[in-house]
Write a protein that binds this DNA or RNA. Sequence first.
DNA 1: CGCTTCCTTCAGAAGATTGTGAAGTTAAGG
DNA 2: CCTTAACTTCACAATCTTCTGAAGGAAGCG
Lengths: 169, 169
Amino acid sequence: MVEPSGTERDAEVISRFVEHFAAQLVEAGLPRMPARVFVALLASDAGVLTSAELSEQLKISPAAVSGAVRYLSQVRMVSREREPGSRRERYRVHGDQWYEALTNREAVIRRWEVALREGVASLGGDTPAGRRLAETLAFFEFVEKEVPAMMERWRARREELFGGDGADA
Amino acid sequence: MVEPSGTERDAEVISRFVEHFAAQLVEAGLPRMPARVFVALLASDAGVLTSAELSEQLKISPAAVSGAVRYLSQVRMVSREREPGSRRERYRVHGDQWYEALTNREAVIRRWEVALREGVASLGGDTPAGRRLAETLAFFEFVEKEVPAMMERWRARREELFGGDGADA
DNA sequence: CGCTTCCTTCAGAAGATTGTGAAGTTAAGG
DNA sequence: CCTTAACTTCACAATCTTCTGAAGGAAGCG
């Protein structure tokens, strides 16, 4: 058998990984196209791809890329940058920020807290149900306070493992 | 205006809360019926409701309740118990375990890690993309190690706030 | 200054999800 | 042992989501 050229081989290997990991993210609640686009970026060497490259690699229409990128930038998992001397747009994974985004359900948790506070107020803090809600609320408040410290520890650990060169971002 | 009886008033207040909080959970990725059933249980004084009660309170068919409960017990957010001298089944929120379930995306994260390890292996740990994946993987491994300690601190904090009587479970 | 290129937006079709009704299953009680 | 009560399962129908194709708009380049 003829050894396939590096790039062809890579294309298939990458595709396998993209589809596999994206499927997991979908299962976890991410919409399909954003998941695929995101993983494709993650698996690209530069961490940057153009709309056209994504469109071709994932076999989807430019419109689908556009929608996916809009979603991803809303949740801060990807940023868009205009390539200077061109009308091409480039999309980039936030090297080490993206998992913060995944962790940062902050906005979500904040809304949960609002709903729970309302619940405690309207059911009454002296009822069994009210107490249960209050405890749940306290849990989220606790987590919200813990997460920043944990991320701080992560940065230290990251430094330790990979050195500070941050070749990525 | 005649003051409505306590229970009627509660019914509406509870319903407001149930729908509001459930909507947030849905937005966060939980299917609608499971979310509504879950919150209804959370807002019930005993933390326990029968299928019939859920069906009536949420205005959904017994079939929908059944499906929702199946989902919830799979993700360990609710447990089912047979009421001794009756064919009624009772569904219960795990007093203080349910947020552990929400936190315990463990299974999910585990699968992500598998996919990422594969990715590192096939892209090569010496490529930029491979390094990015490796870092992501390291992050999840880190989190997985941190969560148990955090939950331990939460239990201590909970004790401190609410005392150990655990009137709930 | 117009042309070209690339991206976006919009409307619609294909597909997936989800909740209902009806039949089936299990178990209590007479 | 038969009846009745309660939950579950199954197949279908309604709904919602999602992706595509086509048209529209900005920005470089000749």
